[in-house]
């Protein structure tokens, strides 16, 4: 009985689309964090010529329209594009890469300001208590954890809610690249309003749950 219930749930298209959305946007956020967090920390901690310029670029990119990035990625990845040989067009992987690029400025900018808001003496403090350079940077990271978590959550929310990139490189193919936003857009066109509303509720529920969990987590770590 229980197994049957699970099987039915698993077969349910709404469930599959939701899981795919979580998977693609979650992976994209993690992937982006992998390069954006060290970059944000570097910009926040070090002083180098052109630092303000670099920060300005990332702040400007915060507002990049998803359709613009989607179009660029389409031109690069589509079969006739310069990176067409990678066979990424119309795959979840292309969507992951696209969303990871989309949220990079968010993680970099928010992580930079989180790190910059930490008392600059924390590094000296960690060092005088015996920390190496790396351990001292980790101490700063720990102090800025509230802001870093916020950066990651904001990125995830932006990724799961975006449409432009997912549509441009995924094209809403049933069973492979359909995600919540692309299906909603398509069903509204049809018009299949009731189904769209169900999906919108799920999307909002995900965004709200993630935000609430983050708030609870932030209260625990600070």
């Amino acid at each position: 009985m229980t197994f049957k219930m699970f099987w039915e749930l698993f077969q349910n298209p709404i469930f599959q689309i939701t899981i795919r959305s979580l998977h693609i946007s979650g992976t994209a956020t993690l992937l982006s964090t992998f390069w954006s967090l060290p970059l944000g920390m570097f910009i926040g901690l070090k002083s180098f010529p052109g630092k303000q310029f670099v920060k300005g670029i990332f702040n400007t990119l915060l507002g990049v329209p998803t359709v613009a990035l989607g179009l660029i990625l389409y031109l690069l990845l589509s079969t006739s594009g310069p990176l067409g040989f990678l066979d990424l067009y119309l795959t979840p992987q292309a969507m992951i890469i696209g969303q990871a690029l989309l949220v990079t400025p968010i993680v970099v900018s928010l992580a930079t300001s989180a790190v910059e808001s930490v008392d600059p003496k924390i590094q000296d403090l960690a060092k005088t208590l015996g920390a190496s350079e790396v351990e001292a940077s980790l101490a700063v990271l720990r102090e800025s954890m509230g802001g870093i978590v916020l950066a990651i959550v904001a990125s995830f929310n932006r990724a799961i809610a975006e449409l432009g990139v997912a549509l441009a490189v995924g094209r809403n193919i049933k069973g492979t690249t359909q995600v919540l936003t692309t299906v909603i857009a398509m069903e509204v066109e049809r018009p299949n309003i009731e189904y769209s509303i169900q999906l919108v509720i799920i999307l909002l529920a995900i965004v709200f749950t993630v935000t609430i969990l983050t708030n609870l987590l932030q209260r625990r770590i600070t």
Binding site: K121, I122, D124, L125, T128
Partner: peptide, 9 residues
């Protein structure tokens, strides 16, 4: 070293 301006984690 203990700093003049108290710095705490």
């Amino acid at each position: 070293m203990v700093f003049q301006k108290t710095t705490l984690f």
